Simulated scan of single mutants.
Amino acid sequence: MSDRGMRMDRNELVLVSPSKDMEHEILQYKEEHFAFGDRQVHGSGGLAFDDSFDEWLNRIRFIREKSPENIALTSTFFSRRVSDGKLIGCVKIHHTLTEELESGGHIAYGIRPSERGKGYGTQQLELCLEYAGQLKLKRVIIACDKDNTASAKTAMSCGGKLVKEFEEDGILKQHYLIEL
């Protein structure tokens, strides 16, 4: 199935791969996070840290494609609301976990500040889990800061079970396991 328009009937969202023609709306999405006080854009593959949209887009395209230099393939998507086309969230999934990626888990996600608390996180994660199944993953790990109760609630709403708590860089983190 193409990742440009994956959709589940019970869902108000569709996952779309970032592209050059989405630059303006992706940058607006990024700016909303900064205006809200966020220091990063969760699930975006480092969008907050790149000054150049093209460099960010090239990097996320590179990490999605198999090559000798890239052993941990990663797909990045935005969730788009079907009714009005607005970008609602961002999600990335590591196709495999290297030792370096284990503490971060398979899936990272975020919802734009103006759309938080409306149930979109669960819908977005459900779509990502469907994609994970297409990748033939049997289980996925979701990591979040222990004080990020919204992320933990999202993981649990999709069947996530708390399996580990650990400290990383002075921050208490949690791992949730979801069996597919």
Rank of each mutant, 00 (worst) to 15 (best):
E115I: 00
A108T: 01
S67N: 13
S19W: 02
V82I: 15
R80A: 02
V91D: 00
S17M: 12
T149F: 14
P113A: 01
R61H: 10
R64W: 04
S83R: 13
H175R: 09
M22P: 11
K138S: 12
K153Y: 07
I107K: 06
E31D: 07
C144M: 06
V14M: 12
A152Q: 04
H95D: 00
L177Q: 09
Q28E: 13
L15K: 11
D54I: 14
Q134R: 14
S75V: 09
E23M: 13
P113M: 02
G133D: 06
L137K: 14
D21F: 14
I88E: 05
S79K: 13
R64D: 09
D51I: 09
E32C: 07
L125M: 03
G46L: 05
S151N: 10
M22A: 13
I71L: 15
S19C: 05
S17I: 07
I63N: 09
I178A: 02
T149G: 08
N148M: 05
G45D: 08
F53C: 06
I142S: 00
R80H: 01
Q124T: 14
G170T: 08
L162A: 10
E126F: 06
T149P: 10
E23G: 01
Y120S: 15
P113K: 05
E25Q: 12
H106C: 11
L137P: 02
F77G: 06
G43F: 13
F78D: 09
E130Y: 02
M6D: 12
C90T: 04
Y176F: 14
D84F: 14
L129W: 06
V16T: 12
G105E: 11
F62S: 07
Q124K: 09
K136W: 04
L129K: 11
H33Y: 12
G5P: 04
T74P: 07
S19V: 02
R112Q: 05
N58H: 09
N58P: 00
L13M: 13
M22E: 08
L73W: 05
G46E: 10
E69Y: 13
D9H: 10
E65S: 05
R80P: 01
F62E: 12
A155Y: 06
S19K: 12
R64E: 10
G85K: 05
L177F: 07
T154V: 14
V163Y: 07
L135C: 05
I141E: 00
H94V: 04
S151Q: 05
M8F: 02
L125D: 04
S75E: 07
T98K: 08
V163W: 03
S103K: 11
E23Y: 04
K86T: 11
I93R: 15
K66H: 08
T96E: 05
H175Q: 14
A72P: 01
K153W: 01
M1Y: 05
R81L: 15
K138V: 02
G159P: 02
T76S: 04
A143G: 02
S75I: 04
D21Y: 14
I141M: 15
P68M: 03
I60G: 04
R139P: 01
R59T: 03
K30N: 09
D145A: 06
Y176A: 12
R112K: 01
I171M: 08
H95V: 12
S2K: 13
L135W: 05
Q124D: 09
K20V: 11
D54A: 13
A143N: 03
G160H: 12
I93G: 13
E25L: 11
